[in-house]
Write a protein that binds this DNA or RNA. Structure first.
Lengths: 238, 238
DNA sequence: AAGGGCTTGTGACAGTAATCACACCCAAAA
DNA sequence: TTTTGGGTGTGATTACTGTCACAAGCCCTT
């Protein structure tokens, strides 16, 4: 099955390869089939908005392929990115459960696919399947944890360099490093990085320069190489 | 029934006056009685820690009387207060549901009382009563919303004066104001206010001075009077 | 090859809030 | 009464980072 934007459509949750590890996975056969019935799927181009901050929740989106960024903005136009989502993530769950407006905007960062589950259907489904409600509660509390990470970063890590170092470390799993350091594909612009750590584009540029000069990292094209992990960890401290 | 710290003990959740509006309220009679069985109650002095950031979750606390502050700290000793809790609030729920360490420290700001529900008992109770699990999910998503408010304040509201104005407004419900302005009992130290808005004690002192000079507010002993609400709203903007 | 649009690098400058320092106030204890 | 200690007010100084400005780079289209 072919789709726009050069993607292959995944049309059945029961056989999807990402289903193993996530929220609506390993359900009873009955529940799984029911869920498969009430979902619909769609393909999105880069830049597509799944939903926008302040909208009444229509339903949840299960990201099947592609990456999305979640952000929130002030009236004056300042924006912060609160999370980068990968395939498997469930977006908009909190708003649907609490019936409040979406608290963030979800924008596709690359072409992708998402399943949509309408609000009413999901709530009905959860009432019928009490055991899944507890799974949802667990997911929500994990979301809450992530939010608290964000609060700690924004509120406790004072300087931009500290937050930048923290971000770099979060990109480089200790495991994936060889003796030359860790390699990461850099897909974000300086502007986006600035919106993640709550500073300006210019400051991010200067941080890159500074860290390169101090041999903490290195850039080859769009590949980022972490050169001195311990030094970064020292900058983070907290 | 008398207790230490001059409090009257509330010993039965089924007849408690704060039960109407909160999480474990208006349950079926059966569920309510079961919950009443597995909870225990205790009285705490000012400064008591219900739990500390990083501890494995032992259970949840339902605050029956008194106020508590929730805070998180960095290794270097910087602290931010993320929430002030009132009677009726359920503390530690996220950690128990997701089985992760408490993400905050809960400290009593005045003498009070809290019911304790052990982790295992609560989880068992939720499995038996699927309808309550959905209520818990709703509560968690409300917590998540509050966390996002915090993220927006920390990440988008740039200047201390903006955050300070925001805090003042959150203390003064529009309703409770007469023509002289809104009166609020001020129970926090400048230091604590600083920890809420993420700045220093000195800056808070200066903000009080500045806002008094501009006739935005007024202090009579420990009573704070909001004099010019519109001006504060204008400072907040976002 | 040339053009346009987005992205990046870096200098100059200004303003704000953190830090340090000290005096003051007030209430509770000795 | 004096003492003590937590809380508060405010000056001086400094460092940092946001803002503005502009040049240069990169990639895609024409």
């Amino acid at each position: 099955m072919r789709a726009p934007y050069g993607l292959n459509i995944l049309d059945n949750c029961l056989t999807c390869s990402v289903r193993e590890e996530h929220l609506f996975c390993n359900l009873s056969i009955h529940a799984g089939q029911r869920l498969n019935e009430i979902k619909s799927t769609a393909v999105y181009p880069k830049g597509a908005m799944l939903f926008i901050e302040g909208q009444q929740p229509r339903g949840v989106f299960v990201l099947c392929a592609g990456k999305a960024k979640l952000s929130t903005s002030s009236r004056e136009g300042k924006t912060i990115i609160t999370k980068l989502s990968d395939s498997g993530d469930v977006l908009g769950l909190n708003s649907v459960i609490s019936d409040r407006p979406y608290e963030v905007t979800a924008e596709m960062m690359e072409p992708g696919q998402a399943n949509f589950i309408p609000r009413e259907s999901l709530l009905q489904f959860l009432k019928e399947h009490g055991e899944v409600a507890l799974r949802v509660a667990e997911q929500l509390s994990r979301n809450y944890y992530t939010a608290y990470e964000e609060i700690r970063t924004l509120g406790l890590a004072t300087s931009p360099s500290e937050k930048f170092a923290k971000l770099l470390l979060s990109w480089s799993p200790k495991s994936a490093s060889n003796d030359n350091g860790t390699q990461v594909k850099l897909t974000l612009t300086h502007e986006e990085i600035a919106e993640i750590i709550g500073t300006t584009r210019e400051t991010v540029s200067r941080l890159f320069s500074e860290f390169k000069r101090k041999q903490l990292l290195q850039l080859k094209g769009s590949t980022l190489i972490i050169r001195n992990r311990p030094a970064l960890e020292k900058i983070v401290q907290s």
